[in-house]
Amino acid sequence: MRYFLRRLGHAFLMLIGVSLLSFFFTTLAPGNYLDEMRLDPQIAPETLAALRAQYQLDQPLPVRYVSWLNSLIHGKMGFSFAYNSPVAPLLMVRARNTLLLTIIATLFAWGLALPLGVWSAEHLGRLPDRLLSWGTAVGLVLPDLALALGLLLLAVKTGWLPPGGMVSVDFESFSLLHKLGDLLQHMILPVAALVLSSLPLLVRHVRAAVADVLGAPFLVAAKGHGIPKRRLLYHYALRAAANPLISLFGFSVGTLLSGSLLVEVVMSWPGLGPFLLEAILARDLYVVIGGVLLSTLFLLGGNFLADVFLYWADPRIRKENGAG
């Protein structure tokens, strides 16, 4: 238990650090939302001054940080200039959409990477393994953007799949089942893009980790005990190879998340990606900070999940940490 508390403590400190850095960097960047207004001759300087005061842009940085923290505690995460509303509710809707995409992509990516990697390791150096290695090599050099655009092009040309968005225009009029189907249909393209972009790396790591343990004496011993091959590969080998893969899992959540920001922009998925991009361009300060913070939170969540898995998978780690 102490192990997890310590990990949570680390994560909390990390969040504070990220919030500080992102706050100062975004505020120190030249220009702000009001600068654009200033160019508009129709807005009176008094109005601008009033807005500056309202948004506390006339206050020194530490004061603004503290008052932002205060609003964070009250669940508002500051104020969006562009939407004229607290940031938190705006972010949450988008975050939900992004999480939906990332979680499903993570599940699919690992669900494919594990059997493919094990299969490849089992046939190490033989034709199937070499073909797969070629495939993953191609996948690795292909830029994510090209992959996403290629898939989009495919969807547009064939018309099989909706080329963007999260739901159809007349979504609200559908029955529940129809709604679900519509959502799934819209998800196929972005999920495919995400899975395909992360799969090659995962397959290679699974292959390497499993191949590493396949020659281990305890596996030969298990084979000598007549343990069936499937059990040998998935129960014995994968379990022994779990540690590096679990660490990779935490990392893969991060890459999938950042990948999804890009894919969302390309495929106009209403998640954090397009929202943050828009906010950055408009210098909508608190939205950017909130987005960065939220992404960090997701990343830390992924790593924490990996820690939990690791703790569960390897008794030696439990021992090392005194088991609470």
């Binding site: 305890f218 000598g224 007549g226 014995y236």
Partner: peptide
């Protein structure tokens, strides 16, 4: 036959057991 009719005991007991089972 393996493990049922003929069993094998390997050299190094610390290596012949699965480490996390």
């Amino acid at each position: 036959i393996r493990g049922s009719r003929i069993s094998l005991i390997f050299q190094e007991p610390s290596l012949a057991l699965h480490p996390t089972m």
